[in-house]
Design a protein around this nucleic acid. Structure first.
Lengths: 299, 299
DNA sequence: CTGAAAGCGCTAACAT
DNA sequence: ATGTTAGCGCTTTCAG
């Protein structure tokens, strides 16, 4: 194309404020230059960091991103998927709540590719990116054991969810390896993975009379709520109880007692999932590795 | 329409997994049944609560919502608006960063209505929903004065943004009314309205040697970071310093020292903005009222 | 290198 | 109550 023409067109676009009609483009091409992401809980920084990774990688690949929240509800998840399907996205990154194989197949039939975070569904064609939570749980517990804190409680919620189960499994394995009986681990199960729930768990622990010497929380929000409530009640962290969290979200570092935690590569998780989506590969599985970050709550 | 036909069609839809092509619908009708929301900072619960309000009201009105973040960047704000315009949304709720009248006019010309949060732009046709921040600042400061804490510091960031200026203005006015000289208020200006910045502000205050007896923070994240850092350094809140925040985000209640703060009707703000949008009224201005929530950090 | 024309799936208007 | 048709703005294809 002649440079002169190019410039002329570009000026005209600028002058008239022309904006391409994406609806028409999507209609014509079958699917557009947008991706979608559905996360479980927008108020947990873990998920916003993840979604930011998805956004960065989408933009880098020339795609726009539509953010959605399922709030952990299967019904909402379904509605958000309907929405993204209607919008003609070409792919979805999702932390699944109740996603089934049929739905993935239906989306595939409409050329909507899927990348799952923290859940494998082999044979569906969907890619997935996982963190080695067994390893993560092991890192956390091994650290507590090394500090001599083998009298341990596990504070958790959503105990059936695979990531949480794996974290617990890894922790128990570390105990066993060190020669301790995993049965002696006190498990406090709360309703949600939130700071409020952590606070509640602390109150339950305080009611028991004797505290364990170490506590492993299934995520950072639980740990932060727990530490705050313990501190309010005069319990010193880490002197009286050492606490280890999981995720390494930003507030973990600015908490009253900066949190020792297992760092998940949250941004990278989102980036990787998106790259898998855009690469157009099927059934690809990637596993990322967590890392222990030692701060004051257990050292 | 005959009931029999209706049922027959519905079954067929179910059976074939028919999903309406929103792109075609949008193309045909000029704009679709979706709205957009652009917030400044997805990691501040204030904004997620706001956006949730927008989502709830959108869904209630039969619309779907596309969430976007500007991250406080004018450039990103522009790109997100381009995106929403391309997607054919019929309206946008936004906490503006660098939105100008031209842009609003251009969007209007394409039938994209706007509702602004915390910024008035009269004459553009855009509606706006505001919180009376002067009143909010006054509530906070009056409370500190009533506690005998008139030796006060104001911890802030983005001091030029209207909401922050108004909060400060209201606080100073309360001081003046009570017969104190507002010039004696120590102002600590940080870079961002985050917990990290609050932590930094605390360190700066500690370096001065003598602490004020009361601190008013421009938002809760600053207050939480500040309290955590003060507590770590052996300063007792509220005994040594009383702290008042602004927003009443969820973490304010679960913080080590539960935060006394000015509650903004965050969800209602989003709902109201959306209802204004959907009602199709122009130039409408609504002002909501903040409320003082007394917890332990200042009582 | 530029111009013309078909058709993506839907809705609104009109005809049966 | 049901069937038919035009056209939204774009991309792709084919002709000039």
């Amino acid at each position: 194309m002649a440079e002169a023409t190019r410039v002329r067109v570009l000026t005209a676009i600028e002058e008239l404020g022309f904006v391409r009609n994406e609806a028409a483009r999507t209609l014509r091409k079958g699917s557009g230059r947008t991706l979608g992401v559905i996360v479980e809980d927008i108020s947990n920084p873990y998920f916003t960091d993840l979604a930011r990774g998805v956004e960065d990688a989408s933009n880098a690949g020339g795609y726009d991103l539509i953010w959605c929240t399922s709030d952990g509800s299967p019904e909402k998840e379904r509605r958000r998927l309907d929405f993204l399907e209607q919008q003609g996205v070409s792919g979805v990154v999702i932390t699944p709540v109740a996603l089934d194989r049929d739905r993935i197949a239906r989306l595939r039939a409409r050329d909507v590719r899927m990348a799952l975070v923290d859940r494998r569904m082999p044979g569906t064609g969907a890619c997935s990116v996982n963190v080695d939570h067994v390893q993560g749980g092991r890192l956390a517990m091994r650290h507590l054991i090394e500090l001599g804190r083998h009298d341990v409680a596990f504070v958790t919620a959503e105990p059936e969810s695979p990531p949480v189960r794996q974290r617990r499994g890894g922790a128990l394995r570390a105990l066993t390896r060190a020669g301790y009986a995993p049965e002696q681990v006190l498990t406090i199960a709360e309703e949600e993975l939130t700071a409020e729930a952590g606070q509640h768990a602390a109150r339950r622990l305080l009611e028991f009379g004797t505290l364990p010497t170490g506590i492993f929380c299934a995520n950072d929000l639980l740990a932060i709520g727990l530490i705050n409530e313990l501190t309010r009640n005069g319990v010193k962290v880490p002197q009286d109880v050492a606490v280890v969290g999981y995720d390494d979200i930003a507030p973990a570092a600015t908490c009253v007692v900066p949190l020792t935690t297992v760092c998940q590569p949250r941004h990278e998780l989102g980036v990787t999932a998106t790259e898998l989506l855009l690469a157009g590969i099927d059934n690809q599985q990637v596993t990322l590795t967590p890392e222990l970050v030692v701060r004051e709550s257990a050292c």
